[in-house]
Nucleic acid binder design. Structure first.
Lengths: 278, 278
DNA sequence: TTTAAACTCTATACCAGCATCAGACTTTTA
DNA sequence: TAAAAGTCTGATGCTGGTATAGAGTTTAAA
């Protein structure tokens, strides 16, 4: 037992921490060695100091920072530990929520890629039943059909600004869309009405989201905004050929964004939609 | 619009990031400005680059590191995103489990302090009903009753080692105890039998924990190991006076450890227990 | 046109909780 | 007695930025 004193390496092994960690704790005053050789500076620890190291490890497990731990160890105040623990509890709660959101974001991202893989080819026309959705957005100030993508970006900037103002930070967790009023669309007047995010009833804290009821939609898939107007025209033709009655506004839904690979322009996969009845 | 180019400050405002962040992204190659004035070094961004910044923010929300993001942006490979996302999903899962454990550890700590507050004074004898518990431990090699606290520390080191070997790292989340065989105890032979942790059926992955059935226990509370033998003696007397039949091994349970305030010795609050029947 | 205000540049340090060196010294083992 | 293993101090790096300092640039008002 050599007088019940251990070298730093032994102490590290016993307590399953690293040597630099012990040196750090020494420097921070969390755990001073029981004895330091004044000649060589070698650190020697007593076996009793395991207890202190246990306590440090425990507090670390509770998620406390070394500074907090040092504070507690110094103040020797039980009530303060309780305060810190209560605070830590709240923090864990927040982290838990954040992590869950992250998790669902990742799931959505994976689903989105999957969906892109299985989506029909660009230009495909279809008639689909779409479940009820909610949207929240702002009116468009510019006409990006006339003035190009720059204006669309400006609308997005404004939408983001407003969302952040309402404490809905994570715009990326939602998919974006734009609309044209029914009447305008039926006459092929490409005048943007709204730019919005799709949301669900749950996460509309503070937002008065608009309900889009479930129903049949005439749809066309395409990648990129460039062909939107042409495709929208085809979609209208499609409706007329089959004598579908248009019963609502035109929607352009961004299914997946792949602006990863291009720092010049957004490249997206879109689904244009018109609600119809028969 | 000045040719659709923005200064770094404007870009930062539009996208709700800080200027240093943009500079960092530039340096890391995540987002190079569309134009850099070769004379002044001023950065100018195109409005189209919002999309790229969106994507970066999105990937950050998914919990990816900047290095990972750079990798994806460089490789331009969709399959790789999927790989990274899947990996991230696992990581989130692990973090979630960890966080939940942390949470319950904090709760236990708070409960433990509460319990300490409400525990009887040291030396109090009592007869208590204790719910069923599980323990897992190792035989004692040394007699810490004879050889002092140092030997107890050695046992703890070994217990910890074995637990870590079995992937039960967080010993601090459990409370510790020691036992003496019934026969030894009844003859006041202080020969440690086991050192163990209290656990519950759920988290005994891989451990064959021993069941301690519910029942009545004669108990005595005390703070610190120093008086354990004396108190154990009083406990035995207590049983004999009241004609309790001892029906199992003697247990010494560490209710709360306050090794915070003392780097020389552990200071604990203990409950000595003997299962009895009438 | 001048001047002041606002902006931007680079470079550096800082945060936590260590890990990982380098270069010099000490202890233990063969 | 020499070699191997251990330890010392001090510096540097990691992440995702923030916050400085000191110098230069752009923009707006006077």
């Amino acid at each position: 037992m050599r007088g019940a004193l251990f070298s730093i390496g032994e102490m590290a092994r016993f307590n399953h921490v690293s040597i630099p960690t012990l040196r750090l704790y020494d420097k921070l005053g969390l755990l001073k060695p029981a004895f330091v050789d004044p000649e060589t500076g070698y650190r020697y620890y007593s076996i009793h100091q395991n207890a202190r190291l246990d306590m440090i490890a425990y507090m670390k497990e509770l998620g406390m920072s070394l500074a907090e731990i040092a504070q507690v160890l110094e103040s020797e105040n039980l009530a303060q530990i309780e305060t810190i623990l209560a605070r830590k509890n709240e923090q864990i709660h927040r982290q838990l929520i954040e992590l869950k959101e992250q998790h669902s974001a990742v799931e959505r991202a994976l689903a989105s890629i999957e969906r892109y893989r299985k989506s029909p080819l660009t230009g495909t026309l279809s008639l689909e039943y779409i479940e009820r959705r909610y949207i929240w957005g702002i009116p468009c100030k510019n006409n990006f059909y006339l003035d190009g993508l720059d204006c669309y970006e400006e609308e997005l900037i404004e939408l983001r600004r407003q969302l952040i103002q309402r404490n809905i930070g994570q715009i990326h967790s939602y998919s974006v869309g734009t609309s044209i009023l029914q009447d305008d669309f039926q006459n092929l007047r490409f005048i943007p009405h709204q730019v919005f995010i799709f949301t669900n009833a749950e996460n509309t804290q503070g937002l008065e989201a608009t309900l889009l009821d479930s129903g049949m939609y005439a749809c066309i898939y395409l990648d990129g905004f460039d062909d939107e107007m042409a495709c929208a025209g085809r979609l209208l033709d499609f409706c007329r050929e089959h004598h579908f009655a248009i019963v609502g506004d035109y929607l352009c839904e961004v299914l997946t964004e792949f602006n990863v690979f291009d720092n010049q322009k957004r490249s997206m996969f879109l689904r244009l939609q018109i609600p119809v009845s028969f």
